[in-house]
Design a protein around this nucleic acid. Structure first.
Lengths: 184, 184
DNA sequence: TGTGGCATGTAAATGGTTACATGATTGA
DNA sequence: TCAATCATGTAACCATTTACATGCCACA
């Protein structure tokens, strides 16, 4: 079976939900996948086109006179099979996330302790606000999708985000403490 | 002051260590920055060239007759200033790490519990081996660079890697447990 | 004599973002 | 009537990887 890129699989997956248009897909990503995946329109529309070309989806265009075109994409059998096949494949390798704060910290002997502490504090604040966002999303999933088959898996990914974020916040605090000690 | 891309700053930073050639830079990245940054030769050599063009570094080429060229790059005053200036700037936004396992998990209702559990277990193993690698690097830093000014900051970034990895491993275990419960 | 590490580089392809362009619909 | 949101799309640009090309040197 042919291999596609990650963006293609992400969109195949989203098309299994009630989101069927490029615009809806973008919304869905921004609302639900935002903590571990993002895609721009510049990828979405071309990818949707290629899905149709590859026979992974059909498109239904509602072009009433005068009105704007709206495209609805629906997975074909082949599309579903392709998605399932990808889901079954093991994850090749751990992502090496490029982390700007770590890169800066790595070379921070060229900075004052104060400056470095400021950097870490700003970072910590962002992590905290991200954590708040996760909590809010979690509430909304629990509230709206109690019976949803998907909900369990969505909560799993959120749980990951929460745990890792908390762990990073703890690291910030710890590291700030060590810097403080050095300063004395 | 002009803005450069992250790769440029990473290389500026590495040029402050004893690594002065494209080859040495690549080694350094693979050994020390590997858990949060990686760069290929396809970026390194062109970037080094552009550093010289921009006046951020000087290049000294040892081209003895018959022998192969070896290039040594040294930061200029302007290069150091540019690096310091970047270090002082706050990190714009948290990285959204694209995480393939989370993407798969998100759509895992199309998979059997067994398949999903297998996926998570494989992932957990990779995390565990990564954690082992971190411990080994830590040992080697502590052993070789006890007095090094840089060592503290290097250990900070490693500590981040270790914490976040452990947190992810815990999440794997927890999530596997929840799946197990569902299966009963 | 051949293998692995040292050493430098480029071209093509891929992946992705940003900025732009266009226009309809909805509700205040 | 104005602003926000709905809706689709493209072109240029930027970043990055991969595959390729070359050749030295040390040492077994």
């Amino acid at each position: 079976m042919k291999n596609y890129n990650h963006t293609t699989y992400a969109i195949l997956g989203i098309l299994t939900t009630e989101c069927k248009s490029g615009y809806a897909i973008k919304k869905f990503i921004d609302n639900s996948l935002n903590h571990f995946w993002k895609i721009s329109y510049g990828q979405i529309y071309p990818t949707l086109k290629s899905l149709v070309q590859e026979g992974l989806a059909d498109v239904y265009t509602s072009s009433s006179e005068g009105k704007q075109d709206k495209n609805e994409y629906h997975l074909t059998e082949k599309g579903i099979d392709t998605l399932k096949e990808w889901l079954g494949q093991p994850v090749e390798q751990l992502p090496i996330e490029r982390n700007e704060i770590l890169l800066k910290l790595f070379f921070s002997r060229f900075q004052s302790y104060d400056q470095t502490a400021l950097l870490l504090n700003q970072y910590k604040q962002r992590l905290e606000s991200r954590h708040q966002t996760y909590l809010a999303i979690e509430q909304s999933i629990v509230y709206h999708n109690k019976d949803d088959e998907d909900a369990m898996y969505w909560l799993f990914t959120l749980d990951y985000g929460k745990s890792v974020t908390i762990s990073a916040i703890e690291w910030c605090k710890r590291t700030l403490g060590k810097l403080q000690k050095k300063e004395d």
